[in-house]
Write a protein that binds this DNA or RNA. Structure first.
Length: 460
RNA sequence: GGCUGGGUAGCAGAGUGGUUAUGCAGCGGCCUGCAAAGCCGUAGACGCCGGUUCAAUUCCGGCCCCAGCCUCCA
């Protein structure tokens, strides 16, 4: 029985899809004006695992993840770069796709872009104006009147008066209420603009997700997700807009991924403490990043440091060292074991990946324990280990590939030649020479293992 | 000020009203020419103060501390 923590109710709830065995899920994706950092990777990897898991449990998941390709920061950045906003966004959309591919993130079923849904956004704004939930200000900009939506604040668990007390931005003369947010913004000369019944302009940030999610998934769907920082105001506003138009529940379950922290601070662009995905991939295997992300529960803050990533690497090596012992070429569906049940119940408990990983390590130990006495059973467990790890997107590589991959240039020919020399030295029981070669290899970052008459090597 | 979520062994990080999380690191052993890998064993923890209970790290209350949101942010 799958339970998911719902930000809306602040409880873990038994998950039930609107249509049996089908799930419609929307995740707020990236604004494309710069490279993605590890914090973005966390969100994408978490939902990647959510989708993989749900599919493995027989759900047909319709996974929509948008791209925001028009917004103030994009306009500003394009202006700074003296290029069109399309040139800018196209470049970063491509970078985003490269990053996601490198991380092994499965593609969303659909990846709508804001600029392709301008008409749908305008349709929503029209309804909100007709219903007088939105108003046109003196400037011509159109705002959402938060006072008209009685349950405003239900997702972030705040009340309008509390919010107003904490206002810390200068209040625009234009708005009736400082918390009102823009739906349509009139264009200044030189800014990107679209025709609308209210004049040339561009959409506000929040309306795009209402338009895209409802267009792609319907007015009422199962899961809506994103980073923690989107709870307020973004998702709150999405609810206000969508439910303001439809008068029915927008999304049933709201999932939010915790922050990635560096030195106890949130990783963010403004603090300048971020690491881009592509930079980290220069030093670490994608599965190491994935392991690191999954080693904490998705709602908790996750601390980043190089030491922790190194630890993730060592942990993954342990699992790969187990799989290396077997030739898992056959297409075998392993039988249920006592481990499988625990793996599944961990995942069913709000995607508790740290606990699921712990189960994988227990399988690994069991394999090591029995492999000499009962090779067949060990092999079955190895198949199971690989299958369950695949749900997390791990252990998908050939073990020797993973274990012999290095971020530095390695000279495999030289390594193998040295190993050959050492084998000869060992046959002659020339331990001094053998150890000297081993030291030499170690200096190259190569670790040697002598087992069952063979010598194997791996990196680091 | 309001609202969220936290504080678990050297590090990371789950979980539980009484029983080994897990990974890395440590200690002892087995294996090995020596290592590596692996196995067995072992040590070490639940912010502070009260309360409930036969029993609390786990429930309740208070306090302290940390992070985040209330402006754009995944």
């Amino acid at each position: 029985m799958l339970k998911i923590y719902n930000t809306l109710t602040q409880k873990k709830e038994i998950f039930k899809s609107l249509v049996d065995k089908k799930i419609n899920m929307y995740v707020c994706g990236m604004t494309v004006y710069d490279y993605c950092h590890l914090g973005h990777a966390r969100v994408m990897l978490v939902f990647d695992v959510v989708v993989r898991y749900l599919r493995s449990q027989g759900f047909e998941v319709n996974y929509v993840c948008n791209i925001t390709d028009i917004d103030d920061k994009i306009i500003q950045r394009a202006h700074e770069n003296k290029e069109t906003f399309q040139e800018l966004t196209q470049r970063y959309i491509q970078a985003l796709e490269e990053d996601m591919k490198a991380l092994g993130v499965i593609s969303p079923t659909k990846q709508p872009r804001a600029t392709s849904y301008i008409a749908e956004m305008q349709a929503l704004i029209s309804v909100l104006l007709e219903e007088e939930i939105a108003y046109r200000a003196v400037s011509g900009d159109i705002y959402y009147d938060v006072k008209k939506f009685s349950s405003y604040g239900k997702l972030s668990h705040r009340h309008l008066d509390e919010l107003q007390a904490g206002i810390r931005v200068e209040v625009s003369e234009d708005k009736k209420n400082p918390l009102d947010f823009v739906l349509w913004k009139m264009a200044k000369p030189g800014e990107p603009a679209w025709d609308s019944p209210w004049g040339r302009g561009r959409p506000g940030w929040h309306i795009e997700c209402s338009a895209m999610s409802m267009q792609c998934l319907g007015e009422h769907f199962d899961i809506h997700g994103g980073g923690f920082d989107l709870i307020f105001p973004h998702h709150e506003n999405e609810i206000a807009q969508s439910e303001g138009v439809t008068h029915k529940t927008f999304a049933n379950t709201w999932m939010h991924v915790g922050y990635l922290q560096v030195n106890k601070e949130k990783m963010s662009k403004s603090l300048g403490n971020f690491f881009t995905i592509r930079d980290i991939l220069k030093k670490y295997h994608p599965e190491v990043i994935r392991y690191f992300i999954l080693s904490s529960q998705y709602r908790s803050p996750l601390h980043y440091s190089e030491e922790i990533l190194n630890n993730a690497q060592l942990a993954l090596e342990r699992l790969y060292l187990v799989l290396r012992e077997f030739n898992l070429k056959e297409n075998i569906k392993p039988a249920s074991s006592r481990f499988r049940e625990r793996f599944l119940s961990s995942m069913n408990d709000d995607f508790n990946t740290p606990e699921a990983l712990a189960v994988l390590f227990e399988i690994a130990r069991e394999i090591n324990r029995i492999k000499n006495e009962n090779e067949e059973e060990a092999k079955m467990l190895a198949y199971e280990l690989r299958e369950e790890a695949a749900i997390l997107g791990l252990l998908t590589e050939e073990p020797s590939n993973f274990l012999q991959k290095s971020s530095k240039e390695i000279d495999v020919k030289r390594i193998e030649m040295l190993i050959q020399q050492r084998v000869l030295a060992r046959l002659e029981k020339d331990w001094k020479q053998a150890d000297k070669i081993r030291d030499e290899l170690f200096a190259l970052g190569v670790v040697i293992e002598d087992a069952e008459g063979k010598t194997r090597w791996r990196i680091q």
